[in-house]
């Protein structure tokens, strides 16, 4: 096995192009796959020490819009601790594994691993995140909702890697929250999770996004529910009312971690709690990157 540690993004893109090796960020997922014999890469390309791939700051994107940019190799712990990111993303990051895992694991790894239970995926989806993908030929940008194609499957080509994650600058002005439930309270893998972001206008919900994870092959937006809730006051809605739009949207499975029916029931509760938390806060909760 070859182990390469490129020092720049362009070098990384070149080595990836020529070797078609496997990208290694924190390695918390990648190591387990190798140890279980799921993959036997000939070349490992460790991008975790490329400086430009780390950090959270304000930038201008390809559409000349202001965005919060997150380097793909920013650790989950850094995301969890950042004051410059929306609450739901920080809460999602806090739900990943243990402190040890969060110190090694990266947000790029969580995204590219594309596990249906990844805890930052629903938050990123509900924040309208966009992913900047890099290849030796250049970059392309893809919306979060178009990125995931199945469990552990994405649109990434073998010669591409994730360079940045970008959030609209406005996402910091929204109220947001994340909830998950796992098979234990500490170091648990999500049986289901939910993320909500919204803006309260005159006490009514608007600009609403609801995303759920671990209940379908990919993280899902619940469009029907968003429609149903938009313009309503939180007090007007009850858990029973949005059971139906949620159940219509999700496609949970039975597996070793949970039954499909429990996933369904609990998703309703998680969405409700996340919504309630959002409504209880004033919007505009983070300072905005680099401020």
């Amino acid at each position: 096995m070859r182990y390469l540690k490129p020092s720049s993004v362009s070098e990384a893109a070149d080595v990836l192009e020529s070797s078609r090796g496997m990208i290694l960020a924190g390695g918390t997922d990648a190591y387990v796959y190798m140890a279980e014999g799921f993959c036997h890469p000939e070349t490992l390309i460790d991008i975790s020490s490329i400086d430009t791939l780390r950090g959270i700051y304000v930038a201008t994107d390809d559409r000349e819009e202001e965005v919060i940019r997150i380097g793909a190799c920013t650790t989950i712990a850094e995301i969890a601790a950042s004051q410059d990111l929306p609450t739901c993303l920080r809460q999602g990051a806090r739900a990943v594994g243990s402190p040890q895992i969060r110190n090694l694991g990266t947000i790029g790894g969580n995204v590219c691993n594309a596990s249906p239970c990844g805890d930052t995926l629903a938050p990123l989806l509900c924040l309208d995140a966009r992913f900047v993908l890099r290849a030796s030929g250049g970059t392309r940008v893809i919306a979060c909702e178009d990125f995931f194609t199945g469990p552990k499957k994405t649109v990434l080509k073998p010669n591409e890697f994730l360079e940045f994650i970008e959030l609209p600058a406005s996402s910091c002005g929204k109220a947001s929250a994340f909830r998950m439930i796992g098979n234990r309270k500490g170091q648990a893998i999500s049986q289901a999770n939910a993320s909500v972001s919204l803006v309260m206008v005159d006490g009514r919900m608007s600009d609403l996004r609801v995303a759920v994870g671990s209940v379908a092959p990919v993280p899902l937006r619940l469009g029907k529910l968003e429609e149903f809730l938009t313009g309503k006051r939180v007090k007007e809605v009850s858990l029973a009312m949005f059971k139906e739009p949620i159940l219509e949207g999700i496609r949970p499975i039975d597996d070793v971690r949970s039954s499909a029916s429990y996933r369904q029931e609990v998703t309703v509760a998680l969405v409700f709690d996340a919504l309630a938390e959002c409504a209880s806060k004033d919007s505009g909760e983070c300072e905005g990157a680099g401020a």
């Binding site: 290694l24 390695g27 490992l44 712990a77 040890q100 895992i101 110190n103 090694l104």
Partner: peptide, 19 residues
């Protein structure tokens, strides 16, 4: 297998020496 890497706890069973 917890060790501290630059003062932060990490799992040394997942950590590759190159890092």
């Amino acid at each position: 297998c917890t060790i501290l890497l630059d003062g932060k706890p990490v799992n040394s069973c997942l950590l590759l020496a190159g890092k």
